[in-house]
Design a protein around this nucleic acid. Structure first.
Lengths: 331, 331
DNA sequence: TTGAAAGCGCTAACAG
DNA sequence: CTGTTAGCGCTTTCAA
């Protein structure tokens, strides 16, 4: 594979002219341009991306930090990121952090090493904490409220309130909440929305109905089993992810309970499987791909514009009522 | 952020010595080494990865071509790739191709542009077709049999035979096959295994029982509905992915059929959701993460060794019998 | 054991 | 419109 010098020789021009023909063809005389283009083809020339990036101090790479790519929701977000990045001529360096902060930092450092131009962080953690000249970061999905990064998020509080109100409207008063990880902003916001709806309806909060989880199928099943062990059982389960809801569903079946007749069940995310469970899951739909697309857009803006657009994008949610929630039938 | 020259000044040595201290510390005198290391810290120096890569003609990047990252199975493969790559000091450039060959080629070209060292292709397609000096590629999951690439694959024929034999042993004779995409090697191999098992059991092949699909929930549901419309219904459904099986399950429920009493159902992959459907899915378990890890190992070998290891790794499968398959009860 | 020097392939002033 | 020139930050001979 040949370099720019060889092309220049073949076309009988200088390397500068070759470079120009490739980057600003319009400033080159048509005749020269054609000669160069012919030479490029003849030499089967492709610019060495490393040299270009080295020289122009722009890599065209974006680092994406994702807690768990095998999660149905995040996989869709990544798909959105990848698609938007590619459309803009950027590439995606993926890091499945598994919540490991050291690994996250390691990848984030790629920006310092000029191997990437910016970072999209899908988790509420700052890998550059305390660094005065931290690189451009956009925070999406799980968002660090106190931080000045541009953000793409859902109004989780409103969404949780909306779902809780749906259950309240069906007559439920003992509504259990199967939460996400204890410290996660997602958990806190959704808990707040849940509490808000309850207190507005004059329903006292019962701490026994709050159960920790981690968004996985297994956690959902375990939580449901624990909640069924309460002396005063809940009549509805609000799970902070569809995966947990599907896990819970199995535990409920195992206990011989019918959904929604004996107990209502709701999830969060609206993953593809939600519509295929038995019964189909009532849930909050999130525009997963849009999270990715908007995050990329925001990051590219930050990279381009000198005035960092400290913006926050709030994406819409939608309550999707399916068969897993129904009227409360005491007894 | 400073460069190697600044560090050299601070340490009172030449840039060559700094470079050596970083790459081969053992050839530098201990005293000098310490001075340099102190200077590195003082200057908060990090080598410019672009410059290093440009100079040393090795990027440390691997391109991964994945048909659909939002697929539960591929997401796990990617996780395995990412983990193995990182452990070896490589980074992953992800491309969700959506089966688009142009997009695949575009990313594969990154190797020509010296932006990546090699390619992991998870689909049976050669983006470098006909190119005499094509770069290192490892083909995993869906494998192009005729190609000389190193491969990581499942013995799909044996796996399909195994699952079909399980159904035959339960007394089923009308076993429908919900296939993957028509041209996919996965489909062809699994079809072959299915046919093999049938003919060995002396069961004639009924073409009506073969239905196309594309591995998605929706395709599974549609296929199941179509098969239920046959004048002579199947008594068992073998779906080429768990997602299709879960889709089919919903269609069966919709038709008022019980699984496995009225009809047996089996999937392929053993995704996490398979154990949580109702009834839990009988399926073929594949070591998804291992596909990724082995593919990375093979690619790194190819990149290192001059004699290209034209090897083929065949990963083990396992028949996981759960509640969705049962004895055939004619009627 | 260390330094000087020559680039890697490309871009971007600056002249002409 | 085109060529000359000077590097980008680093690695790597080759001498000393």
């Amino acid at each position: 594979m040949s370099n720019i010098r060889r092309v220049a020789e073949l076309a009988g021009v200088s390397v500068a002219t070759v470079s120009r023909t490739l980057k600003n063809p319009e400033v080159v005389a048509p005749a020269t341009r054609e000669r160069v283009q012919a030479a490029v083809t003849a030499a089967n020339y492709r610019p060495n991306a490393m040299a270009v990036q080295f020289r122009s101090r722009r890599t065209g790479n974006l680092v994406v930090l994702v807690p768990l790519i095998a999660n149905s929701f995040f996989a869709r977000v990544i798909a959105g990121i990848q698609q938007a990045a590619q459309a803009a001529g950027y590439r995606v360096l993926l890091c499945d952090t598994a919540g490991d902060e050291a690994r996250e930092r390691e990848y984030a450092e790629l920006v310092y090493a000029r191997q990437a131009d910016g970072v999209i962080q899908l988790r509420a953690f700052d890998p550059f904490a305390g660094d005065p000249d931290a690189p451009p970061v956009v925070n999406a999905c799980e968002v660090l409220a106190e931080h000045s990064w541009p953000k793409v998020r859902l109004d989780n509080r409103a969404a949780a309130r909306c779902l809780t109100e749906h259950l309240l409207a069906l007559g439920h008063r003992r509504i259990a909440l199967i939460k996400g990880p204890e410290r996660s902003p997602l958990t806190l916001e959704r808990l707040a929305g849940y509490q808000e709806a309850l207190s507005q309806a004059g329903v006292p909060l019962d701490p026994d109905l709050l159960h920790p989880g981690d968004f996985t199928l297994a956690a959902g099943a375990a939580a449901a089993r624990a909640l069924l062990g309460l002396s005063e059982r809940p009549t509805a389960l609000f799970c902070c992810s569809d995966e947990m809801a599907i896990g819970a569903l199995q535990a409920l079946r195992g206990a011989g309970l019918r959904v929604p007749e004996d107990l209502s069940l709701a999830g969060f995310d609206d993953i593809a499987f939600a519509a295929y469970s038995d019964p189909p899951l009532t849930t909050i739909a999130q525009p997963a791909e849009a999270f990715g697309q908007r995050a990329v857009a925001l990051l590219l803006e930050t990279l381009a514009g000198s005035p960092p657009p400290c913006r926050e994008v709030v994406l819409p949610f939608e309550l999707v009522v399916r068969g897993s929630t129904g009227p409360c039938r005491p007894g």
